[in-house]
Nucleic acid binder design. Structure first.
Length: 636
RNA sequence: GCCGCUGUGGCUUAGGGGUAAAGCGGCUGAUUCGUAAUCAGCAGAUCGUGGGUUCAAAUCCCACCAGCGGCUCCA
């Protein structure tokens, strides 16, 4: 926004002739004495952040107004100050907002009509401060900038602040108890920790989360200082795990009946339906601003809009429903700096995002329950038993009063006490949601699976279907992420492994996610040939061999540090008997750190591993199967 | 975003106004080994980046960047 301030003895203006964008006239002509005249050009970029621009312009104007001691203010639209003007509609909106803002500060303020050719006479006082100009910039940087953070809050945010929520625990008998009065005991310590985290939302911690060291040491992922924080690099092993998880979620959701789609990762901020979302989290958008008149874009924070915009253009009959769409969606959220930790919260992450269009609440509840169970199955396959996460179910009071049995049913399915949050009013788009929350080694909770029942966005995006009577109706939309963000699953797997190590259990990944599933360790150089001859027989598994010139002890230790599930040592004895001496990490018992050692032949080993990973996706090891050929991505 | 702490060879760290120390890793050589680190030698750092104070800065000051923790919050 360009501003030119003239402290005047008087200004006279008269509207002469309309332009195409003329606003309605209040007074055709005016003479104002002792006025600070503010010539204003609203610019294209101001549309990015109206509230900020208005607030800033008002602040500047008042400051100058007070400094020069003018008696009143005249806002005078003056397009000629800029060559990159905002749209007329927006300009009028902004000018009015500025007018109202100043008016609210008990300043006498007049506004010259927008969109008219005006004749004017102005007498400038000529004192040193009588002519000033200001530019208000929304952007930082030239081509790609970020919108400056604004304190202004959207309606939705205000509603959220007003909404009162209360925590309960519902036990498996369906009894609802105020959470503070629930007896968690030792058995439900994890649920208590989750509740504390949810209600207090704070936890004094002086340690780096264990998974951060692990993600580096295991060559999974690492920070990338040359990017924006929260945009990580993934090493081959991490990329493998990530891809396997993605493969798994993708096929599972396809089996459930969702059609995979792909939608753009960036959208125009000008789309009216996107506005509410954006305003709710004004500081959390990754914004990209085109030059000049090009559209202003932001990176999506979920796949919702893409799929909603697609749904809007579909023709849907009640016969087709429920309609399920899925996307493995790279998503972007400019989370606050202090919130970014390792793989737990990122600015760029992959969100499996499924939406289900349902005919009515009955169908929505039915699907909700199936997706609730789907979430449990998915987490179980990834490696989280129901002991590893805590269930939260959140809803509005109205919803609960109408669907008590449904909630009880959900708790029954969970088979253990569940944290309940009840809101006195709906402040956002959903009336019911659940999450499965992982509580990490430092007592922090984060959501994995989640489903929400959305009663608002069908209207906002104009999504409709034809019901049995031929009438158009709004569907109810379910938002579902069966696993939660892929990176977050990896975080939870690492934290879980750490927690198990603390309890004396060797840390490891589930076999189907282990980068190396079987390692062969030749004792001396003369055994290399035999080991290599064994490799083809183990094809279809991720197998490698430690052919480095190191002692056996060293190789065993290194295999352990890599959490390799099956380690087979090969020496003279094995070559002679055509067997392998296999140490099974997952079967270590008692207080010994060592795994269970077994003699088996190659086929036995292969069968065993294949059985254990049956039904799970498989990918080849993306690294040389000879350790001596393998680069180190992370030192130490 | 704000507040606090931190930033030393590839990695993990020691040192803390007088131009850097160790272990791991790497390389070379010896060793060919039976279940959690074989031995010896060599190379490798202008101490996050930029500025300032000083005869002298890794060390003190300022700014920035990054990590961690806290606040806030998580569509």
């Amino acid at each position: 926004m360009q501003l030119l301030f003239i402290h005047s003895d008087y200004i006279e203006y008269e509207a002469k002739e309309k332009t195409r964008v003329a606003e309605e006239l209040e007074t055709a002509s005016e003479r104002v004495e002792e006025a600070l005249v503010v010539f204003i050009a609203v610019e294209h970029e101001d549309e990015q952040n109206v509230d900020y621009v208005v607030a800033k312009a008002a602040e500047e104007t008042i400051s100058i107004f007070n400094k020069v001691g003018a008696e009143r203010i005249v806002l005078y639209p003056y397009a000629h100050l800029s060559s990159e003007l905002a749209s007329p509609d927006k300009s009028v909106e902004i000018l009015r907002a500025l007018h109202d803002n100043l008016h609210a500060q008990n300043v006498e303020v007049k506004k010259a009509p927008f969109g008219w050719y005006k004749a004017f006479t102005l007498r400038c006082k000529g004192h040193p401060l009588s002519e000033l100009s200001r530019k208000i910039t929304v952007l930082e940087g030239a081509e790609v900038g970020e919108v400056k953070e604004v304190e202004a809050k959207s309606k939705a945010l205000e509603a959220e602040e007003k909404a009162e929520s209360q925590f309960f625990v519902m036990d498996d008998q369906g009894t609802l108890l105020v959470a503070d009065e629930f007896d968690f005991g030792a058995e439900r310590a994890n649920l208590r920790q989750f509740f504390m985290y949810e209600s207090e939302k704070r936890r004094a911690v002086d340690k780096v989360p264990p998974h951060v060291e692990l993600m580096k040491r295991l060559e999974i992922a690492d920070y990338e200082p040359s990017s924006d924080p929260g945009n990580l690099r993934f090493y081959p092993k991490g990329e493998l795990i990530k891809t396997l998880l993605e493969d798994y979620v993708r096929t599972t959701v396809a089996e459930y009946g969702a059609a995979e789609v792909e939608t753009p990762i960036m959208y125009s901020v000008k789309h009216p339906a996107l506005k509410d979302y954006i305003e709710r989290f004004p500081a959390r958008q990754y914004s990209m601003v085109g030059k000049g008149a090009k559209p202003d874009l932001f990176l999506r924070f979920a796949a919702c809009f893409g799929q909603f915009l697609m749904s809007k253009d579909m023709s849907i009959s009640y016969r087709n429903m429920p309609v399920k769409m899925f996307e493995l969606a790279p998503s972007f959220r400019k989370e606050k700096r202090g919130e970014l930790v390792g793989l737990r919260r990122l600015r760029k992450f992959t969100m499996p995002d499924m939406h289900t269009l349902c005919r009515d609440m009955d169908e929505a509840l039915n699907e909700f329950k199936m997706q609730y169970e789907l979430g449990m199955r998915v987490l179980d396959s990834i490696g989280f038993s129901s002991n590893d996460y805590e269930v939260a179910i959140r809803f509005t009071k109205d919803f609960y009063d109408a669907n008590k049995d449904f909630i009880t049913d959900l708790v029954n399915i969970a088979g253990k006490p569940v944290l309940i949050e009840m809101w006195d009013q709906r402040f956002f788009y959903f009336v019911l949601k659940f999450e499965f929350n992982f509580v990490d080694a430092l007592g922090k909770a984060s959501a994995l699976s989640t489903v929400q029942i959305d009663v608002e966005n069908a209207e906002r995006y104009d999504i409709k279907y034809i019901d049995t009577s031929g009438a158009e109706k709004r569907p109810i939309i379910l938002h579902c992420s069966p696993s939660g963000a892929i990176e977050r699953c990896m975080y939870a797997l690492l934290e879980k492994a750490y927690l198990e190590k603390e309890r004396g259990i060797p840390p490891m990944f589930p076999l189907w996610l282990s980068p190396t599933q079987v390692r062969l360790i030749p004792i001396a150089e003369r055994h290399l040939e035999y080991v290599e001859s064994v490799l083809p027989a183990l094809s279809g598994l991720r197998v490698d061999m430690d052919d480095r010139e190191e002692t056996v002890s060293k190789k065993i230790r290194d295999a352990g540090r890599e959490w390799i599930p099956y380690v087979a040592v090969v020496g003279d004895k094995e070559v002679e008997t055509k067997t392998l001496s296999v140490t099974i990490r997952g079967e270590s018992h008692g207080n010994t750190k060592k795994g269970n050692k077994q003699e088996m032949d190659v086929l036995e080993l292969k069968t065993r591993v294949e059985q254990e990973i049956r039904g799970k996706p498989f990918r080849q090891l993306p690294l040389s199967n000879k350790l001596s050929k393998r680069v180190k991505f992370v030192g130490g």
